[in-house]
Amino acid sequence: MQPASSTPPRFPHRHLLGIEGLSARDITTLLDMADEAVEVSRQVEKKKATLRGRTQINLFFEASTRTQSSFELAGKRLGADVMNMSVASSSMKKGETLIDTAMTLNAMRPDLIVVRHHAAGAVHLLARKVDCSVINAGDGAHEHPTQALLDALTIRRNKGTIHGLVVAICGDILHSRVARSNIILLNALGAEVRAIGPSTLLPAGLERMGVEVFTDMRKGLDGADIVMMLRLQRERMNGSFVPSTKEYFHFFGLDAEKLACARPDALVMHPGPMNRGVEIASDIADGAQSLIREQVEMGVAVRMAVLEALASHLPNQ
């Protein structure tokens, strides 16, 4: 247990590139800090000075509204100067390579770079080329560590613990970085993790990643404490991976009837943005068991915690 004190607990990593490589203690440290950040964000005066004078660059090669604004708000609440760079306005469009972009930004002496990229491994590549701390905000179908942390925070605050819970992750596991980060994190904290989806959306070897695999949603939801839905990209629903949205919803969409297979006190989560009527029925998304809006609030808190934890490694502190 970390003593409650004004100095942030020790987090032994310079970057946050993924959940992979974090210990249960690292994760718990971040969640404890995030709990404090929730309190800060609920005050009228939401600003801290932890990152005063620091520069945070949000470098998004893939469009994102909620993750980018969440990181922006988190940085600003900690007092950092935040700059958003999106690919539409960047020189990548003019043919610059990822490494050149990284070197250019590095020359501007930022303290923290938050990166999202469509290619798995791109964030790791960039982290090797810059001097500052790098946070992975999603790289391809690889990892999205802050999403997994905010999901864990949401679960912990509602269920008291993560250890021993049955968590069913449902939908497009194949293309999901959220699923990968969650599988690693939930396993590290002792949850029983299940993956549910049609076989076309399940990656090879999934059963060796610490999950029990189901292709029948009702069976997979039986006894679940947490039902975590994933977004299904529109271009994957028209016969390539799944025949149609109609068929997908029929067999894998979360509706009241399927949710009834889970425990009566089961809670429903979704990383957003949702496709109502595709992976989740509207009444469930807005229903009493839904934590979806709370996840968004936890997102800001978790990102504040991550920024603070990494800032403790910055030079001159």
Partner: peptide, 15 residues
């Protein structure tokens, strides 16, 4: 097996 028997997109196999 495929929509319009065109060999490109699978049909609603479950339904």
């Amino acid at each position: 097996l495929t929509k319009g028997l065109a060999g490109r997109e699978m049909t609603e196999i479950g339904l």
